[in-house]
Design a protein around this nucleic acid. Structure first.
Ligand code: FES
Ligand code: FES
Lengths: 144, 144
DNA sequence: TATAAATAGGATAAAATTATCCGAAATAAA
DNA sequence: TTTATTTCGGATAATTTTATCCTATTTATA
């Protein structure tokens, strides 16, 4: 469904959000240990999230990554997915046609579009805030 | 969402179904031209579909691929997806945890599972028959 | 100002997916 | 039985994704 990079990106963003709520910066090392991902690869993904202004970085000694507290509630999963995997997943054709087009649909268009739109809606209405809370409350987990 | 291989497999199966309804065998060449896919790669995928007994092959001169007419209505998309991409898409975790587990869920589990189950239901209830009919009726297309 | 710690980013490698090529095996028809 | 045609299957190549490594740059503190 999502690329590995995107999975790591989502988990990383949640972990950063949790720490930012407590005013704590986190490093790629801490992040990758917590979310069970390769460190250097995770660092690349963090750079991408910074470029897309989803997280911000503090360079130099005592630096790290954080997310503006005030924005944690307004950042939606859709932004992270779009930043890393692009929007193929919500607007692309299920059978790989160049574009998904109502007027020239592929055989699964009607059925696929329904699901895809629900996925899009879900991603657009799921905030980092609620995911961070579920982790903090011990109701969900980053790794086995 | 699906791999390229799976997209080609689905389209190929639909095209074979259409021709089998008319008692016609089709070759990888005809298939790949019709569904706009690389021929040799498509041939590999056809072999996989044969191994999974979704389509049957007639070897040698005047051979080709076909689907038992009587089974076209009972073959569901889920069988093709499972044969080529496995079942990760219906039972896998959205954030890549080893297994999706109610008792040890990832942060997106509840929201993701809903969508995933709907996708599963859709694939399990969409038959080759109905997709073949929509193509035949000119209501859908394999390529731009 | 010097030092140490941290992100940024380029180069490279490994693995998976996608794609091509070619010969072997099967088989219908001549 | 020979020939032509067609699937099967192994080997290989190209591309994309995933992952690692190393150096440059930034910056807080001593
Ligand atoms: S055209 Fe294929 S999903 Fe819309
Ligand atoms: S545990 Fe992640 S989707 Fe169920």
């Amino acid at each position: 469904m999502f690329s590995k990079a995107c999975e790591y990106g989502i988990k990383a963003a949640i972990f950063i959000a949790i720490n930012s709520k407590e005013g704590k910066l986190v490093s790629p090392k801490e992040i990758s240990e917590e979310i069970d991902s390769p460190q250097a690869f995770t660092a690349k993904i963090l750079q991408e999230l910074v470029r897309h202004k989803i997280v911000s970085s503090v360079k130099g000694a005592y630096g790290g990554f954080e997310i503006d507290k005030i924005r944690i509630d307004s950042i939606k999963l859709s932004q992270i997915v779009k930043a890393i995997d692009g929007d193929k997943i919500y607007i692309g054709c299920g059978l790989g046609l160049e574009t998904c087009n109502e007027n020239h649909p592929c055989p699964v268009h009607d059925k696929f579009k329904t699901i895809r739109d629900e996925l899009k809606y879900m991603l657009e209405h799921t905030s980092l805030q609620e995911l961070a809370l579920s982790i903090k409350a011990g109701n969900s987990f980053f790794k086995v």
